[in-house]
Amino acid sequence: MNSSQIPIARKEGLVIQEASGEVLVYDLDKDKAFSLNPTAAEVWRACDGNSSVAEIASNLSGSRDQEEKEKVVWLALDQLKEKNLIANEITSRFEGVNRREVIKKVGLATAIALPVIAMLSFPSSTLAAACPVSLCGGLGVSGGCGPGERCCPSTVIPGTFQCVSAFGLDCGAIPGTTACP
């Protein structure tokens, strides 16, 4: 509940692109991309290590009262913290509270667009096989599936399973395969 806390936006290990008030962030450590809508972006940009939550709220665009603005800032900080986009420790105002309920209440009470952060993951090409490798027994270079390969149902030879280079994708998304039964 302490709005005197000073959040600091993480900058290290990120690729950041800004346009039209929105921010795209790529996390080089986790290989995830985030899209911050204008409200989330405004809060994140304001986390400069000098401003308290209360100060960030008072500078937030929109004409609602301080209490409502602080709730919006905390909603943004909650998500930013969860996505590892805040560099220092902060104690969330909504810790232990159902966020959906908070969003409903704040959303009804404020004219400010609620902060939203969307996320995309970019898989590595060395994930585990999606179907049991035993189904691919005898197929593949070494009788099972090699590194970076998955055992998937084949559309090339229907009714069989085969090891295919996974490229980090799931069976069904890999050409020549269908999803595991």
Binding site: L139, C163, S165
Partner: peptide, 28 residues
């Protein structure tokens, strides 16, 4: 072990000189 290989790693099994195999190979 018949199939299309990339740098000695199997990309996709060979099903014959047919359209479906060509489709699978093309995408890979």
């Amino acid at each position: 072990e018949n199939g299309l290989y990339w740098q000695d790693e199997l990309l996709c099994s060979f099903g014959g000189y047919d359209e479906e195999t060509a489709d699978g190979f093309e995408a890979l």
